[in-house]
Design a protein around this nucleic acid. Sequence first.
DNA 1: ATGAAAGCGCTAACAA
DNA 2: TTGTTAGCGCTTTCAT
Lengths: 353, 353
Amino acid sequence: MSSKVKKRTLIHDIARHLDVSIATVSLVLNGKAKQSRISDALAQRVLAYVEEVGYKPNHLAKSLRTGKTHVIGLVVEDISNPFFATVAWLIEKQAFERGYRIIYCSTDNDTSKAKELISMFQDRHVDGYIIVPSEGLEEQISTILHENIPVVLFDRYLPELPTNYIVVDGAKGMYEATQHLLDQGFSNIAFVTTDSKQTQMEARLEGYVQALQEHNRPQRIKRVDTTHSENILAEIHSFIRENRDCDAIIFSTNYLSIYGLEVITQQKLRIPEDLAVVSYDDHDLFRLYTPAITVIAQPIENIAKNVIDILLNELKHQTDRQTTAHQTVVLPTSLIVRQSSVRSEVQLPESTK
Amino acid sequence: MSSKVKKRTLIHDIARHLDVSIATVSLVLNGKAKQSRISDALAQRVLAYVEEVGYKPNHLAKSLRTGKTHVIGLVVEDISNPFFATVAWLIEKQAFERGYRIIYCSTDNDTSKAKELISMFQDRHVDGYIIVPSEGLEEQISTILHENIPVVLFDRYLPELPTNYIVVDGAKGMYEATQHLLDQGFSNIAFVTTDSKQTQMEARLEGYVQALQEHNRPQRIKRVDTTHSENILAEIHSFIRENRDCDAIIFSTNYLSIYGLEVITQQKLRIPEDLAVVSYDDHDLFRLYTPAITVIAQPIENIAKNVIDILLNELKHQTDRQTTAHQTVVLPTSLIVRQSSVRSEVQLPESTK
DNA sequence: ATGAAAGCGCTAACAA
DNA sequence: TTGTTAGCGCTTTCAT
């Protein structure tokens, strides 16, 4: 009963078999045959044999030697959130085509977990970072920058930190959504957001506030404590109950909307007759809900494309991360009007996407 | 303008600073101080200094040397599917506590992509695999087994392959769901599934068929071609249209149900009056939908726990993967009855979870 | 109780 | 054109 554990082929084995030196094999494998003036014939022989035995270089050894892992660390808030999942998927696809692998992790918006994850990526010697930063990550990210490793933030940024980032204009998006509700004749518009001070949340709030101020309408703002998820439902519940005179409500994230819809169902309120609803971020649920929910959608493909382009570009051109100007991109959102925010079905345009 | 790129501290630096040998530092760091009879005092000094300068060993070098990466590769069908996302999250949490890291990827049920991903994990020298296998992966997984690396499958298995696996009893679950519909007085029950021959899909179908046969009821089965997602909606659309005499419909996966609900909404059918609905897998959408959708739920925590326990156990006890018996676990599903499948609201039990 | 030194598999500068 | 060789940073045996 022999346990045949297959041993991997080494570069040494293939060199010996072909009776050439290890260096020759390595050079050919790394596309440096030409510049080392290795004959095409030999290069072909090497390639053919490598293919035949299915030789795969040991990445660990290679990385140890070159200092490059060709891995990008992606830190998002919650990979099971469709927004982040889709962006991550698009980024991964792009990166893969260009020879990079992505490893991703969720922070659940927990700073200490985020620190741990970034630290783990440092351990793994990732070549670059894509981070959706929770608050208090300035120092850690600063450290990365000091090691001259490229970083791109998205969804939000850290105002103190001169880094590349891609965000959307959430203030404008929310302004438009609020304006839309006012246009529809809703006059008491409530706003449910998180207690977070992150840039993207503050921007969304600001858009709401500005639109209301311009129309001299009262603000009804609820900042939900999201650190204790077991209480979210109850908090929204009492907020909606205490504001029965509101005729419209905006949720600043997709998951708050999902909780919100649950509460609205429980309280047997009709949408939009009793309460019009608008959510930030699109979602299967919002398209399919009856009535369909109006949303402020983010340009997901565009976000992903910008993120990966900027990162790969930095990876290619080793510049000094501390003196070079960083790139910042602000993309527009788009309002998708559905039944949940219109006064009567007649007024609903066909473009519910 | 000097670009101060911080250099990492090496084990060598810390040894020199403390005026001890590299080996001493390494031994202390790996908890082998005692067995090497290194004085507690020295061990403490080392630990203290390591802490002070924040020294982190280079994992690449460590792995190259030891042959262990402490990384587990997790290959699922689609990480943005809440079922897989939750299982992955639970697995990651467990693994993290026991010193292992998870890197995950989605196959989108594409065998060639799955092969690529597994191959990438091999490149990265993961210590073990957790795989939701798409069809045709036998050979590749076989190769892993030959290298004596632990593998655990879940959600489905490959009948040809003697491996560890965790699955649920989908046949029984579907049998119960069908039985429930019959009990409620629905008599023409349609079944929408994929064209996949994977074990879990076949089992679900089997449960449906068996229940109907026992009651001499006709079967109405639609196998949707899921490889072209742009056609799924249309396929379900015509199936439902052509089977207007059906009074109930079961979807064999959560994403088919989501498409199904969209179609049902479009056709302005009322649930459950015109068509009762049952889905496999629970989902936010199903809880919140009006009416709430009855589901066959999987024991997610239990699946995750079994998967990681078996894998970590194998990782601990290096056995011969080719001769040792493998472990197989079959877990029960549970039927969560909601409004979408009951004849009148009165009959709905309070336990909608 | 501690140190020297041999690798893990690979790359690339330098020699020939 | 091709081969030799010195590391990349770490673990661990063996000698002291």
